[in-house]
Simulated scan of single mutants.
Amino acid sequence: MSAAPLIATLLLEEEATRELDALRARWFPPERNQLSAHVTMFHALPGEELPEVLAAVREACRRPAFDVQVTGLRSLGRGVALVLRAPELDAVRARIAAAFAGRLSRQDAQGFRAHVTVANFLPPEQARALLARLEAGFSPWTARARGVGVHRYLGGPWEPVAEEEFDAGPGPGRD
């Protein structure tokens, strides 16, 4: 029997995470909202290779922290997501992906489109209405990325395994 898969997520600064959690609390069906807001970088890294996963994450995080632009909204069919953009995020993800070339799940081997799901499991017409409502009041904003989290998938909630921080570097409120 193989170990449960590992999920890697981008960790955002505390203030941005609170704001995103508030959006999920407002728009996500409460009975389905088992997780805090997150940016999934990988859905299923090999759980039986935990030391290798942690080493790859640690190596990819050896870089300055960076800003992530929240640029808009995207339909998920039965949900709505905020779209995130940062070339640095793409580079961190590519570095981890390279360490698992040929061993990524089909989903993780596909192109990466960074996002935070703020609503899901809605009837399609409700999701379309929510997208229109959120788009009408949307203004782009910036969040600071602070590192990468690794979690074990347990069929619902995730078990935290490790967090690896980026170097602090310059950024908002830093000299």
Rank of each mutant, 00 (worst) to 15 (best):
L6K: 01
L6G: 02
I7N: 01
I7M: 07
I7D: 02
L10T: 07
L12V: 06
E15W: 07
L23W: 14
L23K: 15
R24N: 12
R26C: 05
R26W: 15
N33P: 02
A37R: 06
T40Q: 07
T40I: 00
A44W: 10
P46G: 12
E48C: 07
L50C: 05
L50N: 02
P51A: 03
E52N: 13
L54S: 01
L54I: 04
A56S: 05
R58S: 15
R58C: 12
C61N: 13
D67M: 10
V68M: 07
V70W: 02
V70P: 02
V70L: 08
T71C: 04
R74T: 15
L76T: 03
A81N: 05
L82V: 11
R85V: 10
A86P: 12
E88A: 14
D90Q: 14
A94M: 06
A94R: 01
R95Y: 09
A98G: 13
F100L: 05
R103H: 10
S105I: 07
S105C: 04
Q107S: 13
Q107I: 05
D108F: 04
A109M: 15
A114N: 03
V116M: 05
T117R: 02
V118D: 08
A119E: 11
P124K: 02
E125G: 04
E125N: 04
Q126K: 14
A136E: 08
G137N: 04
T142D: 03
T142G: 10
A143Q: 01
R144I: 11
G147T: 08
V148N: 05
E159L: 14
E159S: 03
F166T: 00
D167W: 12
G171K: 00
G171F: 06
G171H: 06
P172M: 02
D175N: 04
D175K: 07
